[in-house]
Computed example of a mutant assay.
Amino acid sequence: MARASGARSQFAAAFESTYGTAPASGYLKLPFVSTGLSSEQGLIASDLLGLGRDPADPIRDVINADGDVVVPVDLRNFGHWLKLLFGAPASTGSAGAYVHTFTSGGWTLPSLSAEIGMPEVPSFAMVSGIRANTMNLRMQRSGAVNATIGCIAQGEALATATAAGTPTEAVLDRFNQFQGAIKKDGVALANVTSADLTYSNNLDRVETIRSDGKIEGADPGAATMTGSMDVRFADTTLLDAAIAGTPMELEFSFTISASKKLVITAHKVFLPKPRRSITGPGGVQASFAWQAAKGAARMCTLVLSNDVAAYA
């Protein structure tokens, strides 16, 4: 009897033309680190009286389909997750050198169907109506760069055979932490030991009355972008800006080469005045929990440069 293992699991995804309807073709084989994307249906305990001390049968509750997918931040596949988060980018370039610009603030977001397969059982779960709610990305001195994508889906269908066919697979070219950099107003920011950023679409579940127990959809709310930076206390550049309430532009980037890079720009960032604690003889650090706001045109811009012609 075969047993499921993560090493043999598969994640195949395709963008939907109709929300909640899995496409018949066009699936992409996407690499992932872990996934909790699935559906669950709880039970409601019986509230009946007069039948003795032992309870009557419970009843089934509504279906909730959601979960996090941890994915590598790579040169090609990550663009599909950015499209799910922000919508289709504006793409320019030619001859293998393309630039894809994703921007916040769009009113319409696409949806995705993803088949999570464990072929040795066999079990293939098609999760449909997936929308990306949040993205969390952490920067540090070493290691691989991963992003956690928080998803809200409509439902899940189980099958014993794949419905994704033979998915298209892109060459994996992964960003590493040592390729990261942070800039403030266009100038490299020194003494940062770690940083993280979180973008949220603040999706609103449309929980209508339906016979199948699923949600009607997940509509985008007001977007937010927040994060934090841990900084060795060597100068008062950030502290002065925090005290004065002066906004700044923060740029987070990972660069393989001039034509292979990811640049995330928060255009108008405000810092709080942090607490500075001395806990021992080592270096003194301050942690700035920042918040982004809309700049001249938008809150944030993400630019992915690679050899993929389009993410439309």
Rank of each mutant, 00 (worst) to 15 (best):
P23N: 03
S142N: 13
A4C: 03
A170R: 15
A14T: 04
F78I: 01
D68Q: 13
R276F: 11
F252I: 00
P23G: 01
F124Q: 07
T168H: 15
D307S: 12
M139C: 02
G227H: 14
R210C: 02
S305P: 07
L28S: 07
S257G: 10
S253Q: 08
S39D: 03
S104M: 07
R3N: 10
S257T: 10
A170H: 14
G42T: 09
T237E: 14
I59M: 14
M139Y: 08
P31W: 12
L271V: 03
I209K: 09
V73T: 02
F124A: 07
A222E: 05
L82S: 01
L271S: 01
G50R: 10
V308C: 09
G52K: 09
G26P: 05
L238T: 05
P89N: 12
R232G: 11
L158E: 08
M1H: 14
T168P: 13
Y199P: 02
A56V: 01
T168G: 15
A170C: 13
A22P: 04
G143F: 04
S257I: 03
I59V: 15
I243W: 11
D219Q: 13
F270G: 12
T168S: 15
I44Q: 11
G117A: 11
T18C: 03
S259R: 15
G36N: 13
P274G: 07
R232P: 02
F233Q: 03
P220D: 03
G96R: 06
G36D: 10
Y199E: 06
I256D: 10
A286W: 01
P31M: 10
R210N: 05
M229K: 08
A188Q: 13
C300V: 12
I215Y: 12
G213D: 02
R3S: 09
N77R: 00
G87M: 08
M248G: 07
D240F: 02
R138E: 11
V33E: 14
S200R: 04
G283M: 07
A125V: 04
A132V: 01
A153L: 01
E251V: 02
L239A: 03
N306P: 00
A14K: 05
F270H: 12
A296K: 15
P110G: 00
V171P: 10
E40P: 06
S9E: 10
G26A: 07
G79F: 12
V171E: 15
Y19Q: 02
S253A: 11
